[in-house]
Design a protein around this nucleic acid. Structure first.
Length: 208
DNA sequence: CGACCGATTGACT
DNA sequence: GTCAATCGGTCGG
């Protein structure tokens, strides 16, 4: 139903797709499907909320140049940049642009599609959710998405063109309305409207 | 070295 | 709405 099972060969997004600027790639990622193979189980989710970051942007980890932590962000597009924050959370970015640019797109929320039982276990260590709220909170938020999809620091630097995490193009013919706003949770660069989301989607809950 | 803080979340008033 | 949790990265001395 998602278009990933139907094709024998899933269409991973290409290097050329990722090598564009973060501000071009970010809105194009809406509606695309993140696929993760986690300990033999496939999970998939539709991307419904993203934010763009770039080196000239004071809110970006790449702002002060390349370091051990953000090295992946300076690679050519098509890698996963995972960082640890607030002493307990991971967040995942899609690296974009040409090598040395320091650009990336933060995945802020996905709509769960495949492997929901595994996501529930990863997030809550339970077999079942206890409320509709828990289903929405499963993957709505950058750290929630990472926890549900089993993404931690070991996934930092993973290639999206091969291996156990990748992104599949959206089905042609599917349409949806998108919105745009300022980014969430930053104290500088607040004026930039580099956040995009799928309007009306449950897993993008308005503010978040 | 010590101090501060964060691209967040969940619990609680 | 407020606020603590929790720790690696970063920066100043």
């Amino acid at each position: 139903m998602v278009g990933i099972e139907r094709n024998n060969r899933p269409r991973r997004l290409s290097r050329d797709f990722y090598k564009r600027t973060s501000i071009s790639v970010a809105p194009d990622l809406l509606g695309c499907v993140v696929v993760r193979i986690h300990r033999g189980t496939m999970m998939a989710g539709k991307i419904v909320e993203v934010e763009a970051y770039k080196q000239s942007d004071p809110a970006s980890h790449s702002y002060r140049g390349k370091t051990k932590r953000n090295e992946v962000m300076f690679r050519e597009g098509g890698f996963l940049y995972v960082y640890f924050t607030y002493g307990m959370h991971y967040c995942a970015n899609v690296v974009t642009g040409r090598a040395g640019r320091g650009e990336a797109v933060l995945i802020r929320a996905v709509e769960p599609l495949v492997g929901i039982e595994r996501m529930v276990w990863n997030r809550y260590r339970r077999r079942r959710i206890r409320s509709p709220k828990e289903l929405v909170e499963l993957t709505s938020g950058p750290a929630r998405f990472c926890q549900a999809f089993g993404i931690d620091k070991r996934m930092n630097g993973a290639s999206l063109l091969e291996g156990q995490i990748y992104i599949v193009a959206k089905d042609r013919g599917i349409s949806f309305h998108t919105g745009r706003s300022t980014r969430i949770g930053i104290s500088v660069g607040n004026e930039k409207r580099w956040r995009w989301y799928v309007r009306g989607n449950e897993w993008f809950s308005g503010k978040r």
